[in-house]
Simulated scan of single mutants.
Amino acid sequence: MILIIPIIAIAFFIFVINIISSKKTLKRVFLYISLICLIVLLFSIFGVGRWAGMGIGICTMLAYLGISIGFIITALFQKKNETISK
């Protein structure tokens, strides 16, 4: 249950970015945060190691999962709005 809260919070953050900004900005934010997650994940594996590295890696994967869910929801929301407005 505790692990679901950060995923929901990050997905909500991406959804709010969608409402405030354009598609181009949303894609850039998704790309930059994904790259940051990848770098942190690699650092947790090769730099930290052991249990601490595993904890950092799990948190990073949860953040990436939240970002992906938020991006997918906003993409579906935008597509639905485009079909309604036409």
Rank of each mutant, 00 (worst) to 15 (best):
F15Q: 13
V48N: 00
T74E: 11
A63F: 08
M61L: 13
S44D: 12
W51H: 13
L26P: 03
S21M: 06
R50G: 12
E82S: 08
A11S: 15
S68L: 14
S68M: 14
S85M: 08
I69Q: 01
G49I: 02
F12H: 11
S68N: 11
A75G: 11
F13N: 12
K80H: 09
A75L: 09
I36N: 05
T83S: 12
G47V: 05
S22V: 05
P6I: 14
F71P: 03
I10T: 14
G57R: 08
M54T: 09
I72R: 09
F13M: 13
T60K: 03
L3K: 15
N81D: 09
I69P: 04
F15D: 12
R50V: 10
I36D: 01
L41M: 07
I36A: 12
M61I: 13
I84E: 07
F15P: 09
V29K: 02
I7M: 13
F71E: 08
G66R: 07
R50T: 10
Y32T: 07
V29D: 00
W51D: 14
I19N: 10
I84Q: 08
M61E: 08
G47C: 01
K24Q: 03
C37D: 01
K27I: 05
V40H: 01
R28S: 01
I17M: 06
T25K: 04
I19C: 09
K23Q: 06
L62T: 02
I33C: 10
E82I: 02
G55F: 06
L76S: 11
F15R: 13
K80I: 13
Y64H: 04
A52V: 02
K86L: 11
S44P: 04
C59M: 13
K24D: 06
L38A: 10
L26V: 00
L26C: 01
F43N: 04
L76A: 14
N81L: 09
T74A: 03
T60P: 01
L26D: 00
L76K: 13
I33L: 14
F30L: 11
L38C: 11
G49W: 02
F30N: 05
S44W: 00
I69G: 11
G55V: 05
P6E: 04
G66D: 05
S22Y: 03
R28I: 02
V48A: 05
L31W: 09
S34E: 04
T83Q: 13
I39A: 10
Q78W: 07
V48Q: 00
V48S: 08
K24G: 06
A9G: 15
K23I: 04
I56D: 07
K23F: 03
I14G: 06
G53V: 01
I4R: 12
L35H: 10
I58T: 06
A63R: 01
I36K: 00
V40K: 01
I45W: 10
K80P: 02
L41W: 06
A63L: 14
L62Y: 06
L26M: 10
P6H: 13
R50A: 13
K86H: 15
S44M: 02
F15L: 09
I4L: 15
